[in-house]
């Protein structure tokens, strides 16, 4: 299981990579594995305001649909347009090419409510049990 060190994680298996005021958002390796072949990513609209833990996107495989919740609050500033034609990028590269969108983070302190890689790893071990 790939859990990059520099990211923040939610219990719903989203990740956020903070770059200054911006954050890249996507779903984790565990999440893509559990869903299987991703067939569609329903992204927010560019410019949408999102709140931490609010529904902000959906992700689908052939026989399942999952909601994606915002790891942080802020405004969506760009989308990963590639996912429309290539949803499989979420499977192949969940933390890089398969990101969902980029947001302007309004309150960086919210990251304290997220898990770091070590705690997320432990959290996953708990689920496996």
């Amino acid at each position: 299981m790939n859990i990059p060190k520099d990211l923040f994680y939610t219990k719903d298996h989203e990740w956020a990579r903070l770059e200054g005021k911006k954050a890249y958002v996507g779903i984790t390796d565990y999440a893509q594995g559990a869903l299987g072949d991703i067939t569609f990513a329903g992204l927010p609209k560019n410019g949408d305001a999102v709140k931490q833990s609010d529904l902000c996107a959906t992700v689908e495989s052939v026989k399942a649909a999952s909601d994606v919740y915002a790891p942080l609050s802020g405004r969506v500033v760009s989308l990963n347009e590639k996912l429309a034609a290539h949803p499989e990028l979420v499977n192949k590269s969940p933390y890089e090419e398969g990101y969902f969108f980029v947001m302007d983070v309004s309150d960086e302190s919210e990251k304290t409510k997220l898990m770091d890689a070590a705690s997320y790893g432990k959290y996953l071990e708990g689920i496996a049990k």
């Binding site: 569609f40 026989k63 399942a64």
Partner: peptide, 12 residues
Amino acid sequence: LQTREQHIRREK
């Protein structure tokens, strides 16, 4: 495209 449908997405 069955993820639109009730047997998968239920109330959504």
